[in-house]
Nucleic acid binder design. Structure first.
Lengths: 342, 342
DNA sequence: GTGAAAGCGCTAACAA
DNA sequence: TTGTTAGCGCTTTCAC
């Protein structure tokens, strides 16, 4: 773990200045976007810089400007095939805006504390969190003037910046789609207990089911992961009153449920049971699934998250904001008419 | 884009020193792992540090130690459901070793240049590249004394650090598995033209097929993505001599092929055609696919990549190394006996 | 074991 | 437009 410093062979602005026969600050200016430098100067400097492979040291710059141009992105490793897409989109957009992404993966609650320390130590200009964060942890960051944008989560009783996907209307359409098919008995495949996303989705589902005269006959819980759906589906289907439609809190579990029904329990989907999910992940469109689902506009969510954070890095006293995008109903072939009851 | 500096409220080592009534350098020492500090001193300092929420500024530290403890991870956004898993594993392991990950996504060739500049500007201590890199680009980094580890790629004619998965034996087992089932006519679903991974895999496949008395009757190319397999599969199956087994360069395309065969062309898999892939991604185990494939030990590959890089950051003159892990044959249900020919 | 002082590479007043 | 100067917050000799 000893530092063992590397040999110094990196050119500094002094080296460039010497070679170009100008002052060091002139070099600095040439690398600052809006600075006023004469054509001749810029030319001399840039030529020398090229020769020495000089690139300004972002670390030293950050020390003095108090801007690292580093943003931290927190993702829980509880990945459900969905975060990766989001992560790449976000990274890409930050890059275009001149920010670098420091990636943090959160495995357990305990990692968060450590992660926040690192964010602080590395002078991150801002944080996007797609991971679970307590209000206290959130406060720590904002107390330190580090803007935070929560991705796909917010606090009920505490003000934050957040990006959220509203699926109220789409959920209503989805449930109506099912009741129009004759479904009245619903089974809910919920996500983890403290998942805010799952809780919200299921709340909408319950409401819409009630609205359209349906009934929830069974509920079970999974972990959001594919594998977790098998047991949960068994439990739903062995209920006294069998559901004819299963609503999963995300696509991965919907896919797991679909496979369990078709391949283990010998049911036909949608012949015997209809299955729907949430997210609109790529795999949901695979021909073996063609899931009916509610798609989150993740591209636009990523855009919104990035600009919301960048805005707040640039204007620290911008007030909190919650930007809400709208999910859309996607009809697949995992849903169909109720089987005729005997 | 103006810096608009944040108000200074971050405690520095001077603040801590003042509060603790000691010198600033004493504070510094208290935060350096192996330093010699008296019990009393450490206590005073730590108490003051806690009170002020002091955490050493990693940026300033990096400036003087010439070690940023930042590593760059380059991934091509051409993600095939496989990189995300790898990325998270790598990040996690770096974190445990005291390094932070700077994430770079490469969309086009052109991004690489810019990315390398950023790596240089941010003084990254090392680079892991799971993206395409030319020898010249690789050289740029090593010339600047930045160690690089290539993930799942290497150069034939140029020495590098790399992590590679050897599937020679597993490929042989896989092809034998197929010929034992009576298959003799093979179709190859290759990856992108300049993908080294695809090229290598297909080379092994060709060799093994020859070994076991099979014959390649058709070849097509995809992009590694699920969607690309449909067209390629059509082209393979409309060949004069129809293959009875399709070997895809990765699981995603194998899944696409399988779906195209089953759901569009009305073939039975493995009744009419067998399908195999490479990678061993999570989705390959889904009940709708249960792909026969060759699994890469990505956890161990991530481990190897991280320690190889960390070693070289700590001992810059360690020689190049290629660490090769072994892929393993996974039998699924996407392969079976040849149909009886009429 | 502790403190004083130098300086990492840069930006940003300020003066010229 | 350009050069001079003073730090940013830290680590690290070097005395004591």
């Amino acid at each position: 773990m000893e530092p063992s410093p590397k040999p110094r062979l990196r050119a500094t602005s002094y080296d460039v200045a010497r070679l170009a026969g100008v002052s060091q600050s002139a070099v600095s200016r040439c690398f600052k976007p809006g600075a006023s430098v004469s054509e001749k100067m810029r030319d001399k400097v840039m030529r020398a810089a090229k020769e020495l492979h000089y690139q300004p040291n972002a670390i030293a710059r950050g020390l003095i400007t108090r801007r690292s141009n580093l943003v931290a992105v927190l993702v829980s490793s509880q990945m459900n095939f969905y975060y990766p897409e989001v992560l790449f989109q976000i990274t890409d957009r930050f890059s275009k805006r001149g920010f670098r992404v420091l990636l943090f993966t959160i495995n357990e609650e305990a990692d968060v504390e450590d992660c926040l320390n690192q964010v602080w130590q590395y002078q991150a200009d801002g944080v996007i969190s797609a991971s679970y964060l307590t209000i206290e942890q959130h406060k720590i960051l904002e107390d330190r003037n580090i803007p935070v944008v929560m991705f796909n989560r917010y606090f009920d009783d505490y003000d934050t910046n957040s990006i959220w996907c509203d699926s109220v209307a789409a959920t209503d359409v989805m449930i109506k789609h099912l009741t129009d098919f004759g479904h009245t008995q619903f089974g809910l495949l919920q996500g983890p207990e403290h998942s805010m996303v799952s809780a919200q989705r299921m709340k909408l589902v319950r409401h819409a089911i009630e609205n359209h005269g349906g009934r929830i006959v069974a509920q079970a819980r999974g972990t959001y992961r594919y594998e977790s759906a098998a047991g949960a589906t068994q439990s739903l289907m062995t209920n006294a009153a069998q559901p004819t439609a299963i609503i999963a809190a995300n696509d991965m579990m919907a896919m797991g449920a679909l496979d369990e029904l078709r391949n283990v329990m010998g049911c036909s989907v949608p012949g015997d049971v209809s299955v729907v999910g949430y997210d609109g992940i790529g795999a949901a469109r695979f021909a073996s699934y063609e899931l009916t689902t509610i798609r989150q506009p993740i591209g636009r969510m990523a855009d919104a998250a990035v600009s919301m954070l960048v805005d707040r890095v640039e204007k620290p006293d911008l007030s909190h904001e919650r930007r809400v995008l709208i999910g859309s109903f996607i009809q697949g072939t995992s849903t169909g008419p109720t089987p005729i009851q005997t």
